[in-house]
């Protein structure tokens, strides 16, 4: 937690800088990040943001990169605490296209940088790369951004190499809503895009809305009998108990033949760090089937 003294200093400096004619166009000292994908990207660039949103939940669902304790929690992503944001007085606020509706309010605190990653129908990975570069540019971390883009690309390429024996195998990446329904990640989600980058095929080819389809019954997984299934955590509590009794689930070829994996949670709307985490988790899961099958 920030101490009151630094906060007062921040406030004073904000007031001071507001009084100055025009802010210095230098790399911002203090950044607030509303979007989780941009928050992880900021951290990956080696910048400590002054404030982020829903940090309790972030630590559970996004997991990496690890959050320093000093970041102020602004509350919900949908309704961030603007007062607190005003007290933190960042020089720059980073959002994504999801939060455009907050722009008017945010701009009253500081300039807003909005970086789109998820747009309907577009694969997000290239956009995540562009966002990382743009963020690096804005934060004065151009080299770190380039390195992040390259490292991640290299890592994905390595994973693809590992998975070469499984090339073109169809895979469902799903999120279980309850023990009867799932939501599949389509081509315009990070998971779907990553499958393609890893040389696997996305078994879900139907249209999606906002990266994931509306919930459907588990029987839809039977439509592609040779597909593998990756279930992304978290699982609703009752699923662990009831899925084992689900006769259809147990009859799916993927289940019978052990082509099912449950992976740790990944930010659904993440940036490059999440993409990298996803690549690692998917590769770990898939190489398991490679050995077994």
């Amino acid at each position: 937690m920030t101490t009151p003294i630094t906060r007062r200093c921040l406030l004073a400096s904000a007031l001071l800088s507001a009084a100055l004619p025009g802010r210095l166009r230098a790399a911002p000292q203090s950044v607030a990040v509303i979007d989780w994908g941009m928050l992880e990207t900021t951290l990956a660039l080696g910048v400590q943001p002054a404030a982020g949103t829903e940090l309790v939940q972030f630590r559970q669902l996004v997991v990496e990169p690890e959050l320093p304790e000093t970041i102020a929690d602004l509350g919900l992503r949908g309704t961030p605490n603007y007062e607190l944001l005003g007290l933190v007085a960042p020089d720059l606020i980073v959002i994504s296209n999801f939060y455009e509706y907050q722009r008017a309010a945010l701009e009253r605190v500081a300039p807003v940088l909005s970086l789109p990653v998820y747009e309907a129908g577009k694969p997000p990975y290239p956009l995540a790369e562009q966002a990382a570069v743009a963020l690096g540019d804005a934060l004065g971390r151009v080299q770190q951004a380039a390195a992040l883009v390259d490292d991640t690309a290299n890592f994905v390429a390595q994973c693809r190499e590992i998975l070469r024996p499984l090339a073109a195998r169809p895979v469902f990446v799903v999120n279980l809503g309850d023990s009867r329904h799932f939501r599949a990640f389509g081509a315009d989600s990070m998971a779907g895009d990553m499958l393609a980058r890893l040389g696997l095929a996305n078994a879900w080819t139907d249209p999606t809305s906002y990266s994931a389809a509306a919930p459907v019954g588990i029987e839809a997984l039977a439509r592609q009998p040779d597909a593998a299934i990756v279930v992304m955590a978290p699982l609703p509590p009752e699923v662990a108990r009831t899925l084992v009794d689900n006769a259809l689930w147990n009859a799916l070829p993927a289940v019978r033949q052990g082509r099912v994996a449950v992976i740790d949670p990944v930010n659904h709307f993440g940036g490059l760090p999440s993409a990298r985490r996803l690549a690692r988790l998917l590769t770990d899961a898939a190489s398991q089937w490679g050995r077994d099958g």
């Binding site: 309850d178 009867r180 919930p215």
Partner: peptide, 10 residues
Amino acid sequence: NGDYLFSLFI
């Protein structure tokens, strides 16, 4: 809680 209560939507 965002997606965590996805089950409650259903």
